[in-house]
Computed example of a mutant assay.
Amino acid sequence: MRFVLFSVGLWLITQVTLLAQTGNRQSPIHQHAFVCNYTGQAGTQSLCNYMMYTASNGHAEKVVDRILKPIGLVRNFKIIECPNTRNCFATVVSGQRFIIYDGAFMQRIEDMTETDWSAISIMAHEIGHHLQGHTIDGKGGQPMKEIEADRFSGFVLHQLGASLDEALIAIKTLGAEEATTTHPAKQARIDAIRKGWTEAEEIYPQQDSNRIARNTAQRPANPLAMTNPDAPAKETTTPAKAVGKTKIGCLSGDCQDGYGIFVNPTLEKYQGDFANGSKHGEGVQFYPDGKMKYKGTFSDDVRSGNGLYFYRNGDKYVGQFQDNLPHGKGTYYFSDGDRFVGTFIKGKREGFGILYNTDGTQESGNYENDELVEEN
Rank of each mutant, 00 (worst) to 15 (best):
M144I: 15
T180Q: 07
G161C: 04
I190C: 02
G128P: 01
E178N: 14
G196C: 03
I169M: 13
T173I: 00
S121P: 13
K139F: 11
G128Q: 02
H125Y: 06
A188C: 06
E114I: 00
A167E: 00
I120L: 14
G196E: 00
A119R: 09
A149F: 02
I212T: 08
I171C: 00
N222Q: 04
G249Y: 05
G154F: 02
A149M: 06
E166G: 01
G196Y: 01
Q132K: 09
I193P: 01
H183D: 11
G138C: 04
Q142G: 00
H183N: 14
I136N: 13
Q206V: 09
A217G: 08
Q187H: 10
G249T: 03
T246Y: 13
T227N: 12
L157V: 07
K172G: 01
I171M: 03
T113Q: 06
K145T: 13
A231Y: 07
K247C: 07
R189I: 08
K247Y: 10
E201G: 08
E110A: 13
L168M: 04
A185Q: 12
H125C: 13
V156T: 10
H125K: 09
H158S: 04
S209I: 12
C250T: 04
K186Y: 06
T216V: 15
K245S: 15
S209E: 09
H129V: 11
I171Y: 03
A213F: 12
A225E: 09
D230V: 05
M112A: 15
I147F: 01
N228I: 11
W117D: 00
A240K: 14
P223L: 04
F152V: 09
A162K: 05
E148T: 11
E178H: 10
L131E: 10
P143Q: 07
A185G: 15
T246P: 01
D191A: 15
T180A: 09
T236K: 03
T246K: 02
L131H: 07
K234S: 09
K234L: 13
A149Y: 00
E177T: 08
A170L: 00
I190V: 14
G161N: 04
I171Q: 02
A170H: 03
A221E: 06
S163Q: 00
Q207R: 13
I127R: 08
K241L: 11
M123E: 11
E235R: 05
I248F: 07
H134N: 03
A149C: 09
K145G: 04
Q132H: 06
A124R: 08
E177V: 09
S153T: 05
H125A: 11
E114M: 05
G154D: 00
I171T: 11
G175F: 05
T135F: 08
T236W: 05
A185F: 09
A179G: 10
E201T: 04
L168C: 02
K139M: 12
V156M: 10
I169P: 13
P239M: 04
T227F: 11
K234N: 08
A242K: 05
N222R: 09
I109T: 03
